[in-house]
């Protein structure tokens, strides 16, 4: 039996919850409420109060082709970086799980990227992927003009996807490896006795048993790719070239603080929040069903 703490008086229970509630209120509900309020008003750039405009901000944003372009870019970024980060981490973890010698070292080494601040990481990748000097310069030598994220939108998108994935591969790897290690060895051995080879065992036994972890990481990776991408975009591409990497989170910043369109930025952040909420609900409703919780 699990032991649960019970309080004889509800007021004591509330008292314990107060610090957490205060934190959530101060740092989430209050700012979110403010953003909702701003998104429904027109802020004067030079101060002087705001005017209630209803849904006008949303209408003008959604009527703007630039914004739809930004949504598309964000979705492409989310899909590619999540896919890449998860598949690479899954493969590395599966290989590590089989050959455990030195796995403690991998664990430490692979969690480091997650600890690096996004701008620092982006700076490093900017050098690595620079068309004239970095690693890609070699490729450019063979096929001149093949790689130039400064001019080519696709190359720029690939650059930020690479940087973001690199950061999350380590994070995902730790979780995947833990999930693989939690599978009793005897299950794998039983499957081996049943005639199942390495790949077959992976698909029939290990993969289904780590689906809870896959699901968890999917939710985290997608959510983070919408939010944690800001620093990388800012340093590596600043949204360019030609808005090709102007992700939603970056557009909020550039429209709000560079374009001084506070109300439009507030409306955009509400849309981004709703999009993440909808995506998360979708994942829980439709993907979680296929998860085998043990």
């Amino acid at each position: 039996m699990e032991k649960r703490v019970t309080f004889s008086r509800w007021s004591i229970g509330i008292l314990f919850a107060v610090p957490q509630l205060l934190l959530i209120f101060t740092f989430f509900y209050w700012p979110a409420g403010q953003a909702v309020y701003w998104s429904l008003t027109l802020q004067q750039p030079w101060g002087g109060g705001n005017i209630w405009v209803g849904l006008d901000n949303f209408r003008s944003i959604l009527a703007n082709a630039d914004y739809w372009n930004s949504i598309t870019a964000s979705l492409v970024f989310a899909a590619c970086s999540t896919g890449l980060a998860m598949v690479i981490a899954l493969v590395l973890a599966a290989l590590t799980d089989r050959q455990l010698a030195g796995s403690r070292l991998y664990r430490v080494v692979l969690i480091w990227p997650y600890g690096i601040a996004a701008p620092a990481l982006a700076m490093a990748f900017r050098f690595i992927l620079a068309p004239e000097a970095g690693f890609m310069a070699v490729v450019n030598q063979v096929w001149p003009g093949f790689w130039d994220p400064g001019l080519d939108g696709t190359d720029a998108m690939a650059s930020i996807i690479a940087a973001f994935s690199w950061k999350y591969v380590g994070y995902n790897f730790i979780f995947f490896l833990a999930a693989f290690q939690a599978i009793p060895r005897s299950l794998i051995e039983a499957a081996a006795m049943d005639g199942s080879g390495v790949l077959r065992r992976f698909w029939d036994i290990q993969f289904p048993l780590i689906t809870p972890t896959i699901f968890f990481l999917l939710v985290i990776n997608i959510t983070e790719s919408f939010q944690d991408s800001f620093g990388i975009v800012d340093i590596m591409t600043a949204g360019g070239p030609a808005n090709s990497t102007n992700l939603m989170v970056y557009k909020i910043y550039s429209d709000g603080f560079k374009g001084l369109d506070y109300s439009g930025a507030a409306a955009q952040s509400i849309i981004l929040m709703l999009l993440i909420i909808v995506l998360t609900i979708f994942q829980f409703r439709f993907i979680e069903r296929r998860v085998h919780y043990r």
């Binding site: 299950l187 051995e189 039983a190 499957a191 005639g195 080879g197 029939d204 043990r294």
Partner: peptide, 20 residues
């Protein structure tokens, strides 16, 4: 030889049934 090539079947102490 690999386990599957030996023609043995094994019953494990913890049964090792596939939970899913």
């Amino acid at each position: 030889l690999e386990p599957r090539e030996r023609g043995c079947a094994m019953v494990f102490q913890n049964y090792a049934l596939y939970p899913h």
